[in-house]
Design a protein around this nucleic acid. Structure first.
Lengths: 147, 147
DNA sequence: GATAGGTGGTCTATTTATGAGACCATATCT
DNA sequence: AGATATGGTCTCATAAATAGACCACCTATC
């Protein structure tokens, strides 16, 4: 991870990342065909409050519906259901019903879902190591505002 | 990038990422002190429709307000203003006013902002290479639903 | 000299997303 | 009988995002 903190972090990044960002910046624009733009498509999912949190929660092991709800804590059943359905539809999570009484349902990451956790993890590592700087910047900004 | 596609992508990931995910999964739970949890904090930002898109748009070069709006395309002025203010407060973007007539305002990535683009770029690369699989999964899911 | 266009925004009204919580059928334990 | 757990759905209220009018200012065009 040291590379991420030295010099210009971007020019230190693997080529594909830099190239992707450059080419991507070119077509950030409004997509005529929504589904055709991978960036928008994935970013829309990512930009849904619970998606990443649930993927991370499923990483250590598969979990049942109410286990998930207890772990995430402040998610409503409604949003949990909705988010899980979407993730299942996208193929990131699998859903398996067991004929217990009452029936229990187990959610697990698929291979695709697991592969998503690599970039997501990188983002969280960044978040963790830069959280201090962000909080400091906010404090400074707010201090100026008041003045 | 080959490593990301072979076997279990997670166990191939650098240790810090795996460790982060594991420790993170433990405290996905509702934070008593919101600001204390880096995950929630950053994920809340990331989980805001335009944040990432704007960061990516600023990567190639600093841009003015209306340049940004034109490039992103379907963002409203209101959301653009709001998102830029947040990013400025968080220290990811800098705002500089030039005394032209009418005055123009230039937004640029700070060092912190640039450092964020490394993990974000990784996410976009993932999005791009797995978009096909996701679309296929959706098609299959929807086909079952109807049946 | 009126008109259209560009600058960076703010403000209001409407649509969309999220949240809180009741409700359901079934079965187990107390 | 009454409480607890299973995985949801449903309705209603609140929070967030969107479109689009509006503003003050200046320039170039007609």
């Amino acid at each position: 991870m040291t590379r991420l903190h030295a010099g210009n972090p971007l020019s230190d990044s693997p080529d594909p990342v830099r190239a992707m960002l450059d080419s991507m910046a070119a077509w950030t624009g409004a997509p005529e065909n929504e589904a055709q733009c991978p960036v928008r498509d994935v970013l829309d999912r990512v930009g849904q409050k619970w998606t990443l949190l649930i993927l991370v929660a499923l990483e250590p092991a598969p979990k049942r519906f109410s286990q998930l709800q207890r772990q995430v804590g402040d998610i409503s059943k409604r949003m949990l259901t909705q988010t899980l359905r979407q993730l299942e539809r996208d193929g990131l999570v699998s859903r398996q019903v067991f004929p217990t009484k009452p029936p229990s349902v187990e959610y697990a990451l698929t291979g695709l879902g697991r592969s998503a956790l690599a970039p997501i993890g990188a983002l969280l590592v960044w978040a963790d190591s830069n959280h201090g700087a962000i909080r400091a910047s906010r404090a400074a900004f707010d201090a100026e505002e008041v003045a």
